[in-house]
Every structure is written in C-alpha cells, then in structure tokens.
Design a protein around this nucleic acid. Sequence first.
DNA 1: GGTTGTCAAGAGCACTGCTCTCAATACCGC
DNA 2: GCGGTATTGAGAGCAGTGCTCTTGACAACC
Lengths: 233, 233
Amino acid sequence: MTTASPAPRTARERARVELTREIVETARTHLVTAGAAGLSLRAVARDLGMVSSAVYRYFPSRDDLLTALIIDAYDAVGDAAETADRVIRRDRFLDRWMAVSHATRDWAIAHPQEWALIYGSPVPGYAAPEDTIGPGTRVSLTLTQILGDALAAGGHSTPTTVPRAVSRSMRTLKEFLPYALPDSLLVGGVMARTQLFGHISLELDGQFTNTISDLDVFFDHVMRVTGRELGLS
Amino acid sequence: MTTASPAPRTARERARVELTREIVETARTHLVTAGAAGLSLRAVARDLGMVSSAVYRYFPSRDDLLTALIIDAYDAVGDAAETADRVIRRDRFLDRWMAVSHATRDWAIAHPQEWALIYGSPVPGYAAPEDTIGPGTRVSLTLTQILGDALAAGGHSTPTTVPRAVSRSMRTLKEFLPYALPDSLLVGGVMARTQLFGHISLELDGQFTNTISDLDVFFDHVMRVTGRELGLS
DNA sequence: GGTTGTCAAGAGCACTGCTCTCAATACCGC
DNA sequence: GCGGTATTGAGAGCAGTGCTCTTGACAACC
C-alpha cells in the first residue's frame, strides 16, 4: 500500500488520504465476511461513524471502492508469490515453481473472498477498469520468469512445434513478455497457470468436496506433475 | 425439464406447476442479463404480472429460486456434454474428449451467467444445497467414462506410480466411480478437468484478454495437448 | 352446502446505492 | 489578517431490494 501520490501538504489533504485508507481497510474487513456483492457502502460508513453520503466524497461509487480492493488484492497475492520465489535458489526451478504455487494457494485460502474478487466471476454489473490489469499480471509474470530462467540455464527439454495458428494467437502475449520463449513452452506456461488458478478456484468453490480428501497433498502432487511437464527440475 | 412429479390431478395443481415453470423461465431470462446477484424476485414477479409476495408461494426464498436455476444449468451443460460424446465413434477416444471439451466450452460461452452460477464463485450468503451435487457431476462423469473406455480398450500408456498419500487422498473419488482406474490416470483425469473448467472460467472472466487473440484455436490446441497427456488417441 | 386450505394482493419493515441541498470549515490569494 | 472559494460532513429523499404479515377471494373436499 505504498501510495505513490505526491506528499500531502495541507492538513486537509492529510486527513483525506488517511480517511481514504480507513475506508478501504474497513471495506476489506467487511469483504471477508459479507463477500463482494454483500459489501455495503452504508455499513462501511456506519463503522467509521460517518454518514453514507460522506463516503461518496472519497469514492464516487461502490464500484470504485471495489476497484481499490481489487488492486490491493492483486498486489497482495503478487507480493506473496514474488516473496516465495525470492527465497529459493535461482537455479532450483522446480522448487521455485512449487514455492510460488503454494504461496498463491495459501494466500487464496487465507483470503477466499479477495481471491474470488480478482480471479472469480466478476461481480454483476462491474467491469474491471484498466487500472487493474497492471498489478493483475504479477503472479503470471513470476511464473514466466521461472520458465525464462530455466530456459536460459539451458537445461530445458527440446521444444516441440505448435500449429501456426496457435503460435499466431499468442502474438500479443509474446510482445508483452520481456524475453522470448519457444511456442511450446509458452503454451505450457499458459496451461500451467490455468492449472494453478483453476485448481485453486475449483477448490475454493468446493468442487473437490466428496472427491479429494487431503487437498494439501493432492495440490502438491498436481503442481509437481505440472512443473515436471514444464520441463522444470 | 421433464418433471418427474406425479401427474397433477386438480386444476389448482396444474396451475401451480405451470406457474412454477413460468417463474423459473422468467428468472432465467433475467439471469442472462442481470447475473446471479442481480436476480430480483420482484422484477420476475413484475414480468409475470403478479405481485412479489405471490412468488413466495412457489419459492420460499430467493435462494430457492436460484437453486432451481442451478439444477437446470447443471442439467443443461451435462446434456450438452453427453450429447456431444454420443455422436462420436466409441473408440475414437481423443475425438470424444475434444467433442466433450468443445461442447462444454460452447455451452459456457452461450450461457456465461449460468456457467458462473454453477462453476464460478458462489453467490455470497448462498450455500449450494445437496440437490445440486447429483446433476453437478454429469460432465465430470462423461469425461471419466472416456478414460475408462480407453483403458478397457487396452491402448493406454503405462500408468506411473503416485505417492501413497496422494493415492489415499483420492479414496472417496475411487469409491464413487463405477469402475477402477489406475491412480496416475485418476490424477490425470482430475487435472484434465481442472484444465477444462479452469480454462473456460478464466476465459469468461476475461483473464485471457490482451494475452491470447484467437481463443478458439488456442482452446482447441490446449485441449488436444491435455487429451494427449491423458494418453488418448 | 359448509368447512378447509390455498391463493393473490397489499401494506409495511429494514436495508441498499445514490443524489441533492445546506451549513460549517479549511484553504489560498490579496 | 481578511474575504472569497472550494471541500467537507450531515441530512433528507428517491427508487429499488428481500421478506413478512394480514386480508379477502376462491377452489377443493367432505
């Protein structure tokens, strides 16, 4: 939550950033209990001892408050993933992949409502604004970083060819990445991300109840298999 | 919508099942535009020319109406998957897998709100009742059926061993399935399902925008790779 | 034919997001 | 320091929500 805005000069400006932060924090505590759709601007205002219309001075609509929460959540899970990656030796690629996977899942389990907010079905009538696409890619970037490092280390299995149309469909993705990856590894990376995010979301939605008993060991195994299929070791 | 209830005798009972059906259908049309959380019981009543309290004679709460929609959606996507599987020659296992995958995705794209209702983040404050777990497994069952058939045909690659703890964590799943599958194939099946459902959900949530341009060909390729990793051909 | 149960309707409660007005007050240029 | 301006919080109000309760009408059964 490092606000990159210019230093507040006047007392009023200071009070404004302070109150804005308090509103967001109170909203987050409400989010964990009531969920995204149950987030009430009036209830937040009540908790802060102010009247509802006053909150609209700080967030022009409920959706803008939601957007602030979304950005915070993206940053939080991105932090968790990057921090987990950083403590692993750079050349232990599979370990790094496992660390990032577990960190992401752990964060999701600890903050299910915020996970649903960023990776779940969008709240009806809410369209994610452009501000969210930047921090939204941090986890994915960490994952691709591992792939890139493994490729640079040379110890990667031979890339297979993918159909031209598939290669073309990933053009925007390739332009976005800071380094080049073979097409097949790119597909594998996207699939690995789908496996990771999909598994977490399905688990949080209860789609594994009455199916898998020990989800900790199962997730670990699935992610290990996924990492090996990526050629990591 | 084949109601398995006993034939309504009196005119009143007939009017009741008729009106119940009309309510559900109107609710579904509202669902596709307003989404799950935006589904308003009053709006449904207005559309039907009745007052809101009258609807409560048929559905004791808004959640019960949602449950009816969920069961319908599970059945619809299950129908789509099973129908797609049925028209493929039984021994073309990869083709069957591709057909089921595409049918599931096509249905999801055609009914995004209903997909979100059943495979997305649960609506806040709503807990899926037991009635939904039965029809909720039809797509998954179709997928495992393909795996079972492929295994019975003998043309399957050699199963690898999985850790004992992982094997144990799938015990409830094994008891549920009507036939035995090797552990590694079971893990592969769960992962394939995660890949399929996860990809569709991520795509519907817009997580592939600015990344993959032609999602049709990309999905086809991803599912083909997944099918091959399952040992299908 | 009378009793019983079901039904639609309406009023009402507590809540929501959001807008508008109004008074108080902090800020800034002079 | 002072006056004009902009920002702020408070309150009322609108339109909407889920849900409950009561009331009167009607069909179904004995």
